[in-house]
């Protein structure tokens, strides 16, 4: 009994699969080895799906531009920011961050000599492959 669904399915059969490809075709025996091979350029992997512009990835922090106003700490919903009184800068724990970019919105930034407008100390980068075993690893704490 042919149904509309069957037609849809048969049409799909002759198209390219819609699924995003995994980096490699089948799960490798040794992931770390594979990563090293990829880094050395011996193996090519399917690249990750590109992110759109204005994507909210890992927060990038530039201490040079930080004036220590603590505004980001006040608005951060996840309490991911910590103030360091000695340096009057902040420390950001990426493991707690929820990528809402509110801190970027409130950050007043600092005008370095010779610049016309202040540049924000915080901005969202496009980096999203940030999983780690240790939430305090070097990659996940910014100061």
């Amino acid at each position: 009994m042919p149904t509309k669904m069957m037609m849809v399915l048969i049409k799909q059969m002759f198209r390219k699969p819609y699924t995003n490809r995994f980096p490699v075709k089948y799960a490798p025996k040794d992931v770390t080895g594979l990563i090293q091979k990829v880094l050395r350029g011996e193996v090519k992997i399917h690249p990750p799906v590109p992110v759109p512009e204005d994507f909210r990835g890992k927060l990038a922090y530039d201490p040079e531009r930080c004036i220590g106003c603590k505004m980001c700490i006040r608005v951060c919903p996840a309490n991911a920011m910590e103030f360091i009184p000695e340096t009057r800068k902040i420390r950001h724990y990426v493991a707690r961050c929820m990528f809402c970019a509110l801190c970027v919105d409130v950050c007043p930034g600092k005008k370095l000599p010779g610049e016309e407008a202040p540049v924000k100390a915080l901005k969202m980068s496009e980096e999203f492959l940030i999983a780690d075993y240790d939430k305090y690893s070097k990659n996940l704490v910014e100061e």
Binding site: P52, F55, R56, F99, C100, A101, L102, M124
Partner: peptide
């Protein structure tokens, strides 16, 4: 919005 699920 910059993200797939939590739009902020």
């Amino acid at each position: 919005t910059g993200n797939r699920v939590n739009y902020a």
